[in-house]
């Protein structure tokens, strides 16, 4: 990455549209760490959903357009918090354009590294029993299993426990496409919630998993609370005053 190039915080469609507060919390975390990022209000869709649906030709077209977009805007590095964007940008883009060499990093990589380097201090206690749901795109596709666990365990007060199936064996929440098979999504998310029942708090580092798991938890009035990892981190770093969806009491 040359000096004239910029780091893009690529927020992703789901976070922009459904969870802008999570995006803002991520921005605060980046500010705290001292990473200067650009956020663009003409950010394109990564095209990941196109590949999943089988619109491979359309996906390739989209990838080529986006690579051009990154070039025009002098992007030298991309930070994402959406695992689907992460997988698509990091692994599918170089398949389409061999010379695509922009570094792509997931928020969990950035945060874990910052904790290790002492650039982000997580000091506020979170006295909760917590487990972690591996996103398919972040885990099985992206290989990022350890970073989110390291982050969660760095937060004081947390009692961490794994679910019955985790890492490579984690159960999909129902995935990013969902429609028209909503009932299948419901059942798959329910299995995850049931597996987390004794632990009560299920953390995810994926806005799609959050959407599915939290939506289904509310729909079925499930007692498990779903937490977005970024919010957990931002809270412990003192950047936000409460964790959405969780009452810490006291």
């Amino acid at each position: 990455m040359s000096l004239s190039q910029k780091i893009l915080y690529y927020v992703g469609c789901t976070t922009c549209h459904l969870y802008p507060e999570t995006g803002k919390a991520m921005k605060k975390i980046l500010d705290t760490i001292g990473i200067d990022v650009e956020i663009r209000d003409d950010e394109p869709c990564c095209g990941g959903a196109l590949f999943i649906m089988g619109h491979i030709g359309e996906g390739i077209k989209k990838v080529k357009e986006n690579i051009e977009y990154f070039k025009i805007h002098k992007i030298g590095k991309i930070i994402v918090n959406c695992p689907e964007c992460y997988k698509t940008l990091k692994y599918d883009y170089p398949k389409v354009e061999k010379e695509f060499n922009i570094q792509v990093q997931h928020s969990t990589e950035i945060i874990a590294q910052a904790i290790k380097e002492g650039k982000l201090s997580l000091s506020k206690e979170v006295p909760l029993k917590i487990t972690y749901h591996d996103s398919c795109h972040l885990g099985r596709y992206g290989g990022l299993y350890d970073e989110p666990r390291f982050i969660i365990k760095s937060i004081p007060g947390i009692k961490y426990k794994e679910m019955e199936f985790y890492k490579e064996h984690a159960v999909c929440c129902g995935g990013p496409i969902r429609e028209p098979y909503i009932e299948l999504r419901n059942q798959m998310s329910l299995t995850n919630l049931d597996l987390a029942k004794r632990i009560k708090h299920l953390v995810t580092a994926c806005p799609t998993c959050y959407y599915n798991l939290d939506g289904v938890a509310q729909l079925f009035e499930h007692k498990v609370k779903v937490i977005e990892l970024i919010n957990l981190v931002a809270y412990s770093a003192g950047l936000i005053s409460e964790i959405p969806g969780v009452e810490l009491g006291g």
């Binding site: 927020v11 922009c16 549209h17 802008p20 003409d42 950010e43 649906m53």
Partner: peptide, 24 residues
């Protein structure tokens, strides 16, 4: 449903079937 999502990405550059606010 997939056709709709495809058209949404083509037309609005997101999968939600309408214009959304990008960035933060």
């Amino acid at each position: 449903e997939h056709q709709k999502m495809l058209e949404s990405i083509q037309k609005f550059d997101n999968p939600f079937g309408k214009e959304i606010k990008k960035g933060l």
